[in-house]
């Protein structure tokens, strides 16, 4: 089945990014497809590459790189929400990209299931 995932909150501040990651891993393990992950609201902070989380905790940014680069999942931060919060092209987490809200509409239409973590 084709899943689309929306993340609405910033990493670490809320558990949304963690739950989304565990959900995506479990879905991939079961042979499902992730059409796209879309970051909106403060969720765009997930794409901020200048963050340096402490070494004794999980690195949420690296998880997105793992899913985006190694697993080939399309991971998009909303451009309008990113601009508001200082997330810029060229300064984003490897394996993610910045694009418009149309990417959310597209994945909503294409996927069998849209699931939002906020």
């Amino acid at each position: 089945m084709k899943f689309a995932v929306q993340v609405l909150e910033a990493p670490y501040n809320n558990q949304a990014s963690d739950t989304a990651y565990h959900f995506i891993k479990a879905a991939l393990d079961k042979g499902h497809t992730i059409v796209r992950v879309f970051f909106y609201h403060n969720g765009v902070v997930n794409a901020n590459n200048s963050a340096e989380p402490p070494n004794d905790d999980r690195n949420i940014y690296k998880r997105w790189t793992e899913l985006g680069k190694e697993k080939g999942i399309d991971i998009v931060a909303c451009i309008a929400a990113s601009k508001r919060r200082g997330i810029k092209e060229g300064q984003i987490v490897e394996g993610t990209r910045i694009s418009g809200l149309g990417q959310l509409a597209d994945m909503t239409i294409e996927a069998d299931r849209l699931i939002t973590f906020g």
């Binding site: 929400a81 418009g100 959310l104 509409a105 239409i109």
Partner: peptide, 19 residues
């Protein structure tokens, strides 16, 4: 909070997709 405002922006963009 911005949820309601940014949510409305999404509605406007999605409308262009004629759903």
């Amino acid at each position: 909070s911005i949820y309601s405002y940014e949510g409305l922006e999404t509605v406007l963009i999605t409308a262009a997709y004629e759903q």
